[in-house]
Design a binder for these strands. Structure first.
Length: 705
DNA sequence: GAGTTTGAAACT
DNA sequence: CAGTTTCAAACTC
């Protein structure tokens, strides 16, 4: 590998691919070398600035943070203990000159297969802190290595490699606390920087994709990002080629520059070439078609996730295929990390959808992003709001809970961002620095597809954006929080047996519609595909997904339904999908044979993309979502539900706001928090209140923390 | 594509 | 907090 060029480093938001060579990624490589400690603080400074200005920090979408946090914690708990043990065991074998990053990564791997090493449970004298911190790093970049360690053949090899690496960890322990601390900080900075670079690279894509956000472009884009960890997979799983520096970042370095929309093959080759000669050939032999599939697979979790375990290394080809899938998984994970504030904000949903272009693209994305087909052919809904341990009960045999809980989420984020790269806002006067701007509201920078004027919502105006954001948040802490949250069935029940929507979600603050009867996308509830709740102040609510007064949206309400269907048929009739089967329905409130686009497909999207995206199970757990009638309409908006951050719900649930939240749900400064309108009969209003009170115990607080 | 409608966001 | 204005998306033609 080429010697990194160390001098220049401060990547600007507009840095190009050419700068990658000068980018932190290379620095990261440097960091892997033994002389790292001798580096000056200059690097640190650079990192500091970058770290704090990175898009992620700039758009610290609450849900994102939450997600990360939860994810980190989960992983840590899972493998820290094992790691400690492992380190002790391997300390005797120290022949290491391996990079810490690899060790860390391995730790993640080990997490997946603790059994690959004898676990005597001893953890004497090992600093838990060290691993704890390393684990963080591991999570940030390649954290998902665990996914790759699934195959039996890989396990042993990976474990061996892991043992080798641990020596480094031991060395780490011997260093002074200060030094360690500093190194750890550096590591973190690098992680951020790497992430930032990835984003930059991706942001360059839009221009390249000028043609219009073709699905290929999007996929490629994703793949491009995901490339980062590919080598890791091979190295970890094969252990045959340890020559490379092998940190995720390193791999990234080698691959990204080579990657382009045109040479996805190169990408694949580069990934597999060093480690899997046979596999390489195999992949090559599969030609462009396979290329696409490979790339797609990277975006699509379903296959890898579900079928991995079932894969057998019967032959190289099979093995290669497996690796390819594993790669996909990793990539997804990485992408997730990079995502800036995912457009969970309701405002973002429309944009995301609007950007969808060709149906095929959408289909591809949808089919793989949101849906995680089980090996039995059924689809498994995402269920990430659950704790990893509790997720994915359907096929735990295949995958660890974490797989399900994490991958789908990442995919969502990833896809959202990708999709968001397409057409988005059209602000004329807000400078895209107000919540009027969908991009800004979603925590995203405006990019080429936007038609905005005088836009300040760009990386070059980071400070301004950040300040504005802070300002808005100071006014309304929930301004950038998801507008739609999941609610529990019990809450729904408390509202009234008939007030269930396909998705057990509701607009956090409720709508305030007066003329649209909550039957048009003017209504945020309707737009999100959720029913109105008692917190809505709408007048003449006819929300087909659930009226404020508790009227069932299902068949009984001909008018609402009619409107819904009409609306759905207007532009998206072709998008209506049919239910798959009862089994799927059970998990997938809004079944669809097509997309499961995790990203929110809001009604705003009027393209040809097939809707139907089902919402995550967490969101739509109600079994009866489906009156066939409403399902038609519902399918159209299911995707919106997906916008609900996987981890948001838990977070919300954590908040112990009073049950009467419906009244207090509005942010401190929220507008239009007037009492429910009188259109609805007072009796119904009262009933709603009573119900609310009843729901106190289980009602997920809508109010901010 | 232009104009209108709508309701959230912002402002007073 | 309520009323008004601004804004951009949704909608209509």
């Amino acid at each position: 590998m080429d010697t990194p060029h160390k001098t220049q480093i401060t990547p600007t938001p507009t840095s190009s691919l050419s700068k990658i060579e000068d980018s932190p990624v290379f620095k990261y490589i440097d960091s892997l070398s033994p002389i790292e400690q001798a580096k000056s603080s200059q690097t640190d400074n650079a990192f500091n600035s970058l770290a704090f200005l990175s898009p992620s920090s700039l758009f610290p979408s609450p849900q994102i943070n939450c997600h990360r946090e939860s994810r980190f914690s989960v992983k840590r708990h899972h493998f820290l203990a094992d790691l400690n043990t492992r380190v002790l065991q391997s300390s005797n074998e120290s022949n290491a000159s391996q990079e810490a990053s690899k060790a860390i990564e391995q730790s993640g791997l080990y997490d997946e297969h603790p059994g690959c090493l004898s676990n005597d449970g001893s953890s004497e004298g090992i600093s838990c802190d060290l691993f704890d911190k390393q684990s963080d790093l591991a999570v940030e970049l390649p954290g998902t290595s665990k996914y790759d360690c699934r195959s039996p053949d890989d396990n042993l090899e990976a474990c061996d490699a892991l043992l080798k690496k641990t020596s480094l960890e031991v060395v780490e322990q011997e260093r002074s606390p200060f030094q360690r601390s500093r190194d750890e900080w550096k590591e973190r900075q690098r992680s951020f920087e790497n992430e930032r670079d990835l984003r930059k690279i991706r942001r360059i894509k839009p221009s390249e994709e000028a043609a219009g956000c073709g699905w290929v472009a999007v996929v490629s884009d994703v793949a491009d990002m995901l490339t980062v960890n590919t080598s890791i997979i091979h190295e970890n799983s094969d252990g045959q080629d340890q020559r490379t520096v092998d940190s995720g970042t390193t791999s990234f370095i080698s691959n990204i520059p080579e990657f382009s929309l045109d040479n996805a093959n190169n990408l694949e080759n580069a990934e597999s070439g060093d480690h899997q000669g046979s596999c390489k050939q195999n992949e090559l032999g599969e030609s462009v078609t396979d290329q696409t599939s490979c790339i797609l697979s990277t975006c699509l979790p379903d296959k890898p996730v579900v079928t991995d375990s079932s894969l057998k290394k019967d032959d190289k080809g099979e093995k290669c295929s497996q690796l390819s899938r594993q790669r996909s998984i990793r990539r997804r994970c990485l992408v997730f990390e990079k995502s800036p504030g995912f457009g969970l904000h309701l405002n973002s949903l429309p944009n995301i959808l609007k950007g969808q272009n060709p149906p095929n693209k959408s289909i591809l994305s949808s089919m793989k992003m949101g849906e995680v087909p089980s090996d039995n052919g059924t689809a498994v809904t995402e269920n990430s709001s659950e704790t990893p341990a509790s997720v994915g009960g359907t096929d735990a045999d295949h995958n660890t809970p974490e797989k399900k809980s994490l991958i789908p989420c990442r995919q969502k984020f990833e896809l959202v961002e990708e999709s968001a790269s397409c057409k988005r806002c059209n602000c004329k006067r807000s400078k895209c620095l107000k919540l009027y701007c969908d991009c800004f509201a979603a925590g995203l920078y405006c990019i080429e597809p936007c038609s905005c004027l005088d836009c300040f919502n760009k990386p070059i105006h980071e400070k301004m954006v950040l300040e504005t954001r802070k300002q808005i948040e100071s006014r309304n802490p929930q301004a950038f929080a998801p507008k739609v949250i999941r609610i529990t069935d019990s809450v729904l029940d408390s509202w009234g047996e008939n007030n269930k929507t396909p998705a057990s979600a509701r607009h956090k603050r409720g709508c305030n519609c007066r003329k649209s009867s909550c039957l048009k996308k003017y209504c945020e509830c309707f737009q999100a595909g959720v029913g109105c709740s008692p917190s809505c102040r709408c007048e003449g609510c006819k929300n087909s997904f659930g009226r404020k007064d508790g009227c069932d949206e299902s068949g009984s309400d001909g008018e609402g339904l009619e409107a819904c269907e009409k609306n759905a048929s207007d532009k998206n009739s072709h998008n209506i999908v049919t239910h798959k089967n009862a089994e799927e329905h059970r998990d997938l409130p809004v079944p669809s044979n097509i997309s499961r686009l995790p990203l929110a497909y809001s009604g705003k999207f009027t393209g040809s993309f097939p809707h139907s995206i089902r919402s995550s199970s967490q969101l739509c757990s109600t079994p009866e979502h489906g009156s066939s009638e409403s399902s038609l309409c519902q399918s159209k908006f299911n995707s919106n539900l997906q916008a609900i951050p996987e981890d948001e719900t838990p977070k919300v649930l954590k908040h112990k706001c009073l049950p009467l939240v419906l009244k207090t749900n509005s942010p401190p400064n929220s507008k239009r928090v007037s009492p429910p309108h009188h259109e609805c009969s007072s009796s119904t209003a009262q009933r709603s209140r009573k119900l609310i009170l009843k729901s106190i115990p289980s009602f997920p607080s809508f109010c901010p923390p």
